[in-house]
């Protein structure tokens, strides 16, 4: 269906990067397949000066094929937007125009004129709700006409997290790695134990004495981009809550929640965590975290090492004083 893709005006509404990039590259690929010498230009709405478009969008002597992509069309100035509309009224055969518009209130007049003129309108709305993310992933997995178990979609979502690009790439990886229906077992074979790491998850494992678990999370995280400061600050927060709960006495969680200004579930969880800790241990843990905070803010050469050493010190502090 390359002819369909190469409609004279394609409008992409939305700002979900992945979807926009896919739509744009689909069109460019189709145009290249049609004519390998096609001239592709991509412009940012905010960079387009009046007159720039005339250069690209006027008839040329040799009528070579051209593709023009205008990103962030909502940032076009008044004059340049008028130039786009004037071109649309009299489009050229050899030009394929793609306009990407965020779809917000900005540049709304341009958007509605484009919508009535566009041969093809695609939606690239940002995916925010879990249900939408699930639909997206399911569609990705079914792309080749494969059979997908609904539970497998859920398992993959849980394992990979919320980033759309990562979801799309893990889906295509899974499709090429497996044959036949996609099942929970298939997902687990490739994605077991991979959870989204964050500072609090690491801190939780550390204060519960699970050194291996905490280190594993940190290592996973450092595969992507470990934010050392988030680990130290989350650990400081967790230890602070523990110290407050520990010194607040043996009241029911509901009462303590009011006193400490914490939600009741957090009080209960913290009460569980603080078991097995002594004041001396808390003190040592605090000092380890403070030292590591200085280290990750430029005090140490190797920040990864500073974080791991801190986790080790915290887990050891847990047993101290008993």
């Amino acid at each position: 269906m390359p002819t369909d893709l190469l409609s004279p005006l394609t409008l992409i509404v939305g700002d979900e990067e992945l979807l926009v990039a896919r739509a744009v590259s689909d069109v460019i690929r189709a145009a290249r397949a049609d004519d390998p010498d096609v001239d592709v230009r991509e412009l940012e709405g905010s960079d387009v000066a009046p007159g720039d478009l005339g250069e690209v969008l006027s008839p040329s002597l040799f009528a070579e094929r051209r593709v023009l992509v205008i990103h962030a069309a909502e940032d076009l100035g008044k004059d340049t937007a008028a130039e786009v509309l004037a071109y649309i009224a009299e489009p050229l055969d050899e030009v394929t125009l793609l306009v990407v518009h965020a779809g917000g209130a900005k540049g709304k007049a341009l958007l509605s004129s484009l919508q009535s003129a566009a041969g093809r309108t695609l939606s690239a709305a940002r995916i925010t709700r879990p249900g939408e993310r699930r639909d997206f992933l399911r569609a990705e997995l079914r792309a080749d006409g494969r059979v997908v178990e609904e539970e497998a979609v859920g398992a993959l979502l849980e394992a990979v997290g919320n980033d759309l690009r990562e979801l799309a790439s893990s889906a295509s990886q899974l499709l090429s790695d497996t044959h036949g229906p996609i099942t929970v077992a298939a997902v687990n074979r490739y994605h077991r134990g991979r959870a989204e790491a964050n500072g609090f998850a690491v801190a939780e494992r550390a204060v519960e004495g699970d050194l291996a678990g905490a280190l594993e999370l940190v290592r996973w995280w450092s595969m992507v981009k470990l934010e050392h400061v988030l680990v130290t600050s989350a650990l400081a927060n967790t230890l602070r809550s523990m110290a407050m709960v520990a010194s607040a006495g043996r009241n029911p969680a509901g009462v303590l929640a009011g006193q400490l200004g914490m939600p009741a579930w957090k009080v209960e969880k913290t009460q569980r965590q603080v078991r097995g800790w002594r004041p001396e241990g808390l003190e040592r843990a605090f000092q380890a975290v403070a030292a590591a905070d200085a280290d990750v803010k430029g005090g140490a050469v190797d920040q990864d090492y500073a974080v791991e050493r801190m986790l080790l010190a915290v887990v050891q502090a847990r047993g101290a004083g008993r």
Binding site: T232, A236, R240, L282, E283, Q287, V289, A290, D293, A294
Partner: peptide, 19 residues
Amino acid sequence: TALDGNVAPLLAVESMALA
């Protein structure tokens, strides 16, 4: 020294108070 090295002020002072 810790404050000079940009450690979160509360954390640095807490660590000191416990010491």
